[in-house]
Design a protein around this nucleic acid. Structure first.
Lengths: 231, 231
DNA sequence: ATCGCCTCAAAGATATGACGTATTCAAGTG
DNA sequence: CACTTGAATACGTCATATCTTTGAGGCGAT
């Protein structure tokens, strides 16, 4: 589900360029310039710029042009912004931010899931915990990643909080990045796996306290490891 | 910092209408129809629609039209979406979501602030704690609200995490809504005030554990009160 | 020399006509 | 009944014209 057509292509060029700092904060672009640079019409440029303006990465003013806004104003929760930052020079900072966010949110989500999850959710969660164990033992990193993402997304979704649920994609991005850039041990640690099983069991048993504690251990561990790797 | 001009006005009409469910999920709009309904040109309609598409509230497809997407796809973290939902029929759900998010994030932010805050931040925080105490005693709800927002925003900002910092506006929206709709006691509770002072003192003393605990008490209390009021 | 006002031009904002193109739906065909 | 084909439709893109806002420089008065 992405923005299509020429405006989408323009966005795919401009967004990362701005997110990576290649087009620095305060830089001024002119619509006409973009038309020429990308060989598209005014219509297309304006629509792409409007979207960027919607995520507060740029501001368009008459007689001035399109100015890149300071990073502090950007909608840092916008999935597109997150993706662009993860792809560029901001990757470490973005990973750290998301890591801290996970530490805050996922334990709370696990606690809520323990009381709010549907029976289907609980079954699915148990099944995923098993899958995780199996793929970890087989050292199948790709399958492990897939199940890990599914596990954490499901917990977030099962929390019943729409805002938590929406962080599933961001968490997926973090986990994917961690695997892609070899920021995790080649063989997932047995201890982490056991914690995942504990989370699943606690949620199935409606034990919010235990679910929260186990999940907190998982995400704080992940954050610590991330910090070690990034230093 | 809002989207200006005619597209902005169109957004200000369409966004709330969709957010409130007045234009239901799955509804199909035609660009030409919107041109007529709002008396603006294609250019304007297209730009507004593109922004809505950027926040995934609508999807535009050839030969079909502009379809309203299911709520589960919306960028629920987009400040515009939050504002629109708070203004409409989704207000209770939005307040609950934000309340849970606060419970997850603000304690973590307080803990981080205890170790990351600048000296200026700490001074400002102490000052705000005093202001809170004074305005609470004077039962000046508006001034209290202003300081309360400043306090929580500052803690989020001082955490040093950009994503936490960006939740300041949303927290402000929750607090404002709570006051506007008389969802809080006329005289702020002395216990809550003392907790704010405790947070400030703990952050100043670099006591992360204490700051986190006091902040958790504040936000869980607020959430409980919110749930009582909304039932 | 400084302040304030005025004018002009630059750049975005809006409107509109023309054409392109994908997609759906249905008629037609085997 | 399945498949093909074609036409209608609504968005997508381009080009152009005109309007509006606003920053900068000039000009005069104090």
């Amino acid at each position: 589900m992405e923005i299509q057509g020429l405006p989408g292509r323009l966005l795919a060029e401009l967004g990362p360029a701005i997110a990576s700092g290649e087009i620095p904060e305060g830089a001024v672009l002119r619509g006409e310039e973009l038309e020429g640079r990308f060989g598209v019409s005014r219509t297309v440029v304006r629509e792409a710029v409007r979207v960027l303006e919607g995520m507060r990465m740029v501001a368009s003013r008459r007689r001035v042009g399109i100015t890149v806004q300071p990073k502090s104003l950007w909608d840092v929760f916008d999935p597109m912004v997150i993706r662009w930052r993860l792809a560029g020079a901001d990757r470490p900072a973005q990973l750290r931010s998301l890591g801290s966010l996970r530490v805050a949110v996922e334990p709370a989500a696990a606690a809520l899931a323990a009381t709010h999850a549907s029976d289907d959710d609980r079954r699915e969660l148990s099944s995923l915990a098993v899958d995780l164990t199996v793929t970890a033992r087989a050292a199948d990193l790709n399958a492990f990643l897939r199940h890990d993402i599914a596990f954490h997304s499901l917990v977030l979704r099962a929390s019943g909080n729409e805002m938590f649920a929406h962080l599933g994609d961001s968490v997926a991005a973090v986990l994917t990045g961690r695997t892609e850039y070899h920021l995790m041990p080649h063989q997932p640690e047995p201890y982490a796996i056991r914690l995942h099983r504990e989370v699943a069991e606690a949620i199935c048993a409606e034990d919010a306290v235990h679910a929260e504690r186990a999940m907190r251990t998982i995400v704080t561990g992940a954050l610590e490891e991330l910090n070690v790797q990034l230093d």
